[in-house]
Simulated assay, not measured.
Amino acid sequence: MYNILLIAAIFGFVLTTLLFSKKSTHPTATFFLGSFYFLLSVYALQAYIIDGGHLANCSWFFLWPLIPYNLFAVPVYFYFITIIEDEYKWKNTHLFWFLPFILSIIDVGYIYIQPDAVHSKLLHTAITNPQNRLHASYWLLNLDQHMFLRHLWQLLALLFVLPKLLSFISNNGTNKLKNLLNKWLLIFWFGLTLFAVFAIFYAVGNRLGHNIFEGGAIIPITLYMIMFLVGVIPIYFPTILQGYPKVIKMIPKDGQVGETKKNNKFGLHEEQVESKLKLLMDKKIYLKQDFDLTNLARELEIPAHQLSYFIKEHYGVNFTVYKNNLRIDYGKRLIHEGFLSTNTMDALALECGFASRSSFSKVFKNTTTLSPSEYDNKIKNND
Rank of each mutant, 00 (worst) to 15 (best):
G255R: 09
G243Y: 02
N171L: 15
N3C: 03
E214F: 05
L66T: 00
F62A: 02
V257H: 14
G267H: 00
R357Q: 04
A347D: 01
K178D: 06
L55F: 13
F148H: 00
I4K: 12
Y48Q: 02
A56V: 09
N382K: 15
L229P: 09
V321M: 07
I233G: 01
L287S: 05
T260G: 10
L152Q: 02
D254Q: 12
V14M: 06
M147G: 03
K362H: 13
H135Y: 12
S24Y: 06
G205H: 06
I102F: 08
T82G: 03
P115Y: 11
S275W: 09
D383A: 09
N182V: 01
S341R: 15
E85T: 10
K378C: 09
L208Q: 14
D86C: 14
K278I: 08
L66K: 02
N263Q: 12
L162A: 14
Q46N: 10
E351T: 15
L159D: 07
Q114P: 04
N325M: 06
Q272T: 09
F160C: 13
F148K: 07
S359L: 15
L18I: 12
R298W: 08
S120M: 07
Y202E: 09
L149R: 01
S104I: 00
S41E: 08
N325H: 10
S341P: 06
F266Q: 00
V230A: 08
H94S: 09
L229T: 06
M250E: 15
S371Q: 13
H94L: 15
L326G: 05
N70L: 00
F188C: 03
L123W: 00
L340R: 00
I169M: 04
I67K: 02
G255M: 06
Y224T: 01
L143V: 10
F237Y: 13
S358N: 14
V161S: 01
I235L: 15
I302T: 07
F13T: 02
T30E: 13
I335E: 08
P234W: 04
I105L: 15
N295C: 07
T93M: 09
T239G: 06
F31D: 04
A203H: 08
K22T: 11
E301M: 12
T16N: 07
F11R: 03
K91L: 11
T342E: 13
Q256G: 05
N325Q: 10
I187R: 02
N129A: 10
L293S: 06
G34V: 04
